[in-house]
Write a protein that binds this DNA or RNA. Structure first.
Lengths: 206, 206
DNA sequence: TAGATTGTTAATCGATTAACAATC
DNA sequence: TAGATTGTTAATCGATTAACAATC
């Protein structure tokens, strides 16, 4: 069924499944049912089965899902079975913090280049990465084969950085700046703005 | 229409409207139509009108929305018209970065206390805040009237911190740790895990 | 007035959940 | 075999979009 379009909601749940399956694998659990999964992840078991069924028949009736096998499959689906190079622009506090997550990302994804528009920042070292000036971006990204870009600059600079990413052939962007950026339709943008998140939380206070 | 339940999707868009309206206000623009708003924010104008109409009649037919007035109204809806105190647990790289966003949050929300389980961290200063040991949490939160908690500890510690937040009467939690946490239904939890976000982005690579 | 734009109803679209035959 | 659990269809639920009368 590779042809049907998978909804964004489904794709966003896959990493959550993967994360929990990895936890189970570390505890040497062999199989898991959609029931168990649903309980732990606060999701409807039918939804989990349906999500997975978009991509294949990964379970066994009466048994559940083999954890090692399902991990392998989800990694393939998410394209995490290969190395994906990531670049980050904006070596401020947040950018620096994210660079230090490299170990977290395991082998699948890795921040391999950091840029900053402030000349004074160039040359600084963050977790074995040297901050480079923006002028180097095009050359560095194509040499390293970077496909995903992270934006951690102030809102006023985000569109500018996005434009440069697009010009460098970046395929997907994770934008931490609190502003909507415009990119060609073939470039995927996700947002990760914690101020927006906090503000919507306030609504639920009594 | 205060009685009808407002969907989460609507609440999540309000801060996005607010943000852009603030930008316009700074440029001294006086009014804006749902058309304009939709264009800038990549949203359907009908959706914007409907979202706002849940809360009242804020626009003028033939004219659009008065920006100053709409800002005031959205701030009231989101409860950002009062000061909201926020506490953060986990003074690692990410926690430190977030503390430095205090200026960004303006007056409406403010991180007023930082805690860390590592005794060696206690006493450190981050952006005028002194890191305190976990044992102080209950006393400090009730003294400062903290209502929202931010979790920036490793996944393995997140549930534990959440439990302590709940015991302190925290009403809402923003969890940056890559794990689902369990809290009583009256406590609201939002997730802000950038590794999940990155992994779902990978799916969209060719 | 004529043009623009809201608020709102109805139509559409899509996502979640329930139910169950198939089968391990 | 009996019990458990999948994959999948059908039913439900909810969110988005289109359309338009009201009106500034």
């Amino acid at each position: 069924m590779k042809s049907q379009k998978i909804s964004e909601a489904v794709v966003r749940r896959l990493p959550i499944y993967l994360r929990f399956l990895n936890e189970l694998a570390m505890k040497n659990v062999a199989t898991v049912s959609s029931q168990d999964l649903g309980q732990k992840l606060d999701l409807n078991p039918a939804q989990i089965r349906k999500d997975l069924a978009y991509f294949g028949e990964f379970g066994k009736k009466g048994i559940g899902y083999d954890i090692a096998y399902l991990i392998e499959k989800i990694r393939q689906i998410l394209k995490l079975d290969r190395h994906i190079q990531v670049a980050l622009v904006g070596a401020g506090n947040l950018g620096r913090a994210l660079c230090n997550y490299n170990t977290y990302l395991r082998n699948d994804m890795k921040i391999v280049a950091v840029f900053d528009a402030m000349p004074s920042k160039a040359g600084e070292t963050i977790n074995n990465l040297t901050v480079q000036p923006m002028g180097e971006m095009k050359a560095v990204l194509s040499e390293l084969g970077v496909r995903i870009g992270i934006i951690t600059v102030p809102a006023s600079e985000a569109q500018n950085v996005a434009n440069q990413f697009v010009a460098c052939g970046i395929e997907a962007i994770l934008n931490f700046a609190p502003v909507i950026i415009k990119v060609p339709p073939e470039v995927r943008v996700h947002y990760a703005d914690f101020t927006t998140e906090l503000q919507s939380l306030a609504y639920y206070l009594d």
